[in-house]
Design a protein around this nucleic acid. Structure first.
Lengths: 123, 123
DNA sequence: GTAGAACTACTAATTTATTAGTAGGTAATT
DNA sequence: AATTACCTACTAATAAATTAGTAGTTCTAC
């Protein structure tokens, strides 16, 4: 999958959240200052060409939806994080996380549950 | 702290690793195809202007070192990743990385112990 | 002392990314 | 049927990022 630019990424985040979107929906979600309609349309067209968005004609306007799943994109993006920030050491990373967030008892229980049940289930 | 571009980030990773570096050291660490000396020098100069690198004259050449600490940069990055990919939930993010790791039972126990004992010990 | 290597500062070209203009179509509204 | 709003496709302008050229300096080695 092709790398996305900042703007492309921003638009994809919106589409992933909305599932399907018209240009106007994307603009609505973008923070001020809102870009010009055609600006968004241009980037969306690039995303279609890159194969990360697909479009369907609804009436006489395009409706867009993601053509790659969020999880795949996330996995690609996070692939090098551990290496980049923790010298590839899992335990260093976990120590960081554990220290960083003051988790409540309930959150800790939930997390432990998640870790145990998700074991070896990486999609 | 200002956002870094890809190339800038790549160079900063090297400087953080080496602690101090001359342009030639950075080039040496960069993968093939190595960019032109002046290309690196230009980006380094941008990094100085942004305030993330500082330079010191050693003889008649510049030696560069980081002016912001790696930890701060890492924290910023992990913060935005958390928001972007895990709905701002630290435990979801932890669970994600834990899942990736295919931990043994013993390792899971150790991890759980660590989570519990590090609780509320934020530096 | 001249040739070469590596640096400097400065500038410029190229590529990539972002923004938005123009012109024309469709549909609803008055 | 003219006005308005919003869409289309296509093109172009601008901005940001990356790359590298030129010219001059210093140092080292022949």
């Amino acid at each position: 999958m092709q790398k996305l630019t900042k703007r492309e990424d921003q638009i994809m985040q919106i589409v992933w959240r909305l599932k399907t979107a018209f240009i106007r929906d994307i603009i609505e979600q973008l923070p001020e200052p809102k870009p010009h309609y055609n600006t968004v349309a241009t980037i969306v067209k690039i995303l279609v060409k890159k194969g990360v968005l697909q479009s369907e004609m609804i009436g006489n306007t395009h409706q867009y939806s993601s053509a790659v799943d969020f999880e795949a994109y996330r996995d690609e993006n996070l692939g090098s994080i551990k290496k980049k920030f923790f010298g590839n050491s899992f335990s260093k990373m976990m120590a960081y996380f554990a220290k960083e967030e003051n988790l409540s008892e309930a959150e800790i229980e939930e997390l432990i549950h998640m870790i145990k049940s998700n074991k070896n289930k990486k999609s």
